[in-house]
Computed example of a mutant assay.
Amino acid sequence: MTKRLGIGLIAHDRKKPDLAAWVTRNIQVLSAHRLVATATTGSVLKQSHPDVSVETVKSGPLGGDQQIGAMIAEGKIDVLIFFPDPLAAMPHDVDVKALLRLVLVYDIPAAFSPSTADALIMSDVFSPARRR
């Protein structure tokens, strides 16, 4: 049996529709894996895909980014898809930076826009032969 990947999904407010559209385009691949999203992002994804299991943690500003980071440190998240809004102020900027630091420390594949997420999902990361 092939290991399912843990995939973290986060999107800031104005980027949630972009992430929902990306998930819709890639639902066949994603539904074979364990999806974990911050609360509001998760509720948007559950509305779009009620038949797909999406585990949710707290909202990003309320600790959800930190929970996803902890899951990375514990080896429960293998890939991060995070669509931040570069033009919006982030009151929880320190949480986002901490999350990004853990992505780098644990060297997990991450994408921060639809085009990089497309490249990632088409890469060997999602190939069973490449998984650790």
Rank of each mutant, 00 (worst) to 15 (best):
K3I: 08
R4H: 05
L5Y: 07
G6M: 06
G6V: 00
G8I: 01
L9H: 01
H12G: 09
D13E: 15
R14I: 09
P17D: 07
P17G: 09
A21K: 13
V23H: 03
N26E: 02
V29H: 03
L30W: 00
L30Q: 02
L30F: 02
S31H: 13
A32N: 09
R34Q: 14
V36H: 00
A37V: 05
A37T: 01
A39P: 01
T40R: 07
T41W: 00
G42R: 10
V44Q: 12
V44L: 10
V44E: 14
V44P: 03
K46R: 15
Q47V: 09
H49A: 11
P50L: 06
S53P: 01
E55K: 11
T56D: 12
S59C: 02
S59P: 08
L62M: 14
G64I: 10
G64T: 07
Q66Y: 08
Q66T: 12
I68T: 06
I68G: 04
G69N: 02
G69C: 03
G69K: 03
I72W: 03
I72H: 04
E74A: 12
E74L: 13
K76L: 11
I77A: 06
D78W: 14
F82A: 03
L87K: 15
A89L: 11
A89P: 04
V94W: 07
D95L: 14
D95I: 15
V96L: 08
A98M: 12
L99C: 05
L99Q: 06
L99H: 07
Y106N: 14
I108Y: 03
P109L: 12
P109A: 14
P109Q: 10
A110I: 06
P114C: 00
S115C: 04
S115P: 00
A119K: 13
A119L: 10
L120H: 07
L120I: 04
S123A: 10
F126H: 05
F126E: 00
P128V: 08
R131I: 13
R131E: 03
R132Q: 09
